[in-house]
Design a protein around this nucleic acid. Structure first.
Lengths: 73, 73
DNA sequence: AATTAATGTAAAGTAAACATGACATAAAGA
DNA sequence: TCTTTATGTCATGTTTACTTTACATTAATT
């Protein structure tokens, strides 16, 4: 899964730590998600998309490889 | 978080088991998600929304209570 | 060049998302 | 009514999302 968190943060000019605070997770969690290290929960994705005032699909995009395995990782 | 999986399944006239197969998870997982028993991963939410040809926010909707706690459960 | 702010990374722990197998019940059709 | 299909649920197990603490690195400011 790809994401555009870094770009959207730049638009709003906020840091990872500030985004983390806005959605109530740790800064490290935002960092890991932004770097594609794991598959965040849907509630968190909805919150992040709402902060960015974007549809979820605009921030998080499926890749073809995501269809080959199951819902995890 | 609320969801409209049951309604969207009805539109397509597919069972929980069929949806499960389409997105490569177990039938029990779809059942639990549909009943709101847990907070599915974003990849899975994107897959389900894609099967339904709907935006994620149209299938999965944040509730106010989701903002009070953290990204989990 | 020195300090601060922002980001990246790592280790260890906890909670929860998933899987599988099994069974109970409800709905539907023959 | 009998059988099949669809849904709900429980128990057990594994994987992983997320937390916390801590430190290293990079970027920005003075």
């Amino acid at each position: 899964m790809k994401n555009s968190i870094k770009v959207e943060r730049a638009k709003l000019n906020i840091t990872q730590a500030q985004l983390a605070e806005l959605v109530n997770v740790s800064r490290q969690t935002i960092n890991a998600i932004e770097l594609g290290k794991y598959n965040l929960s849907t509630i968190l994705a909805l919150k992040i998309a709402q902060v960015f005032k974007q549809p979820v699909q605009n921030v998080f995009e499926l890749e073809d490889s995501d269809w080959q395995s199951d819902g995890n990782s």
